[in-house]
Amino acid sequence: MAADLSTTHFELFGLPQSFEVDTEQLDSRYRELQRTVHPDRFANASDLERRISMQQATQINEGYQTLKDPLRRGRYLLELGGYQFDDEHRTTSDAAFLMEQMELRELLSEVREAEDAFAALGKIMDRIDGDAAILVAELQRLFAEAVPGASGQIADALTKMQFFRKLQQEALELEVTLEDEIG
C-alpha cells in the first residue's frame, strides 16, 4: 500500500486529531481526495493504475466513514492512543442503561401487534436515534475534558453506543422483514 495512506485518517484528510470534527471540512476534503484518486478517473488507465486507484479510493472511503461516524471515530481515537478493545467480553455495568435496552428490545418485539406496525417501528427508531444522540454529546464532553485515565470511561460510553447500533440494525432488519411480509 502506498506510503501516504499509512498515515492516520486525520492526517490523510488534513484534520486535527480530535473527536470534534468539522464535518463540512471533512466532506469537502473527501470530495477533493476522491476527485484525485477515484477509479472513474482511471477508466482508460492500465490495470496497475486501476488497481492502485481502487485501493486508494477504498482507503479514503474507509477513512471518511471512520471520521464521519462518532462511534467509529471514538474507537479509532482510543486505538490511536494505544487503547485495546476486548470486544468479546465487553459490556457495561450501568444497570439503568441495561434496563432501557431491555425495554427497547421488548418494544421491538411487540411491533407486529401494533395497528400500524411501520409507524410503531418508526417511533422506536426515532427514540433509539435520540438516545444515541445524547450519548454522542456525552462522548464529546469526555473527549473534550481529556481527563487522564478517562479511556475506560470513554470505552464504556462507546460500548453503550455499540448497543444502540445493534438495536438500530435489528430495527432495520425488522422493517425489511415486515415489508417482505406485506409484499
Partner: peptide, 23 residues
C-alpha cells in the same frame, strides 16, 4: 513510480490545508 505520483497528487490536493489552520 506510479504510486509516488498518486501520493504526490493527493498531497497536492491537500496542499494549503495545513492542520494548523484549524487550531
Amino acid at each position: 513510480y506510479v504510486e509516488r505520483r498518486m501520493n504526490s497528487s493527493i498531497r497536492d490536493a491537500m496542499a494549503g490545508h495545513s492542520v494548523d489552520e484549524f487550531e
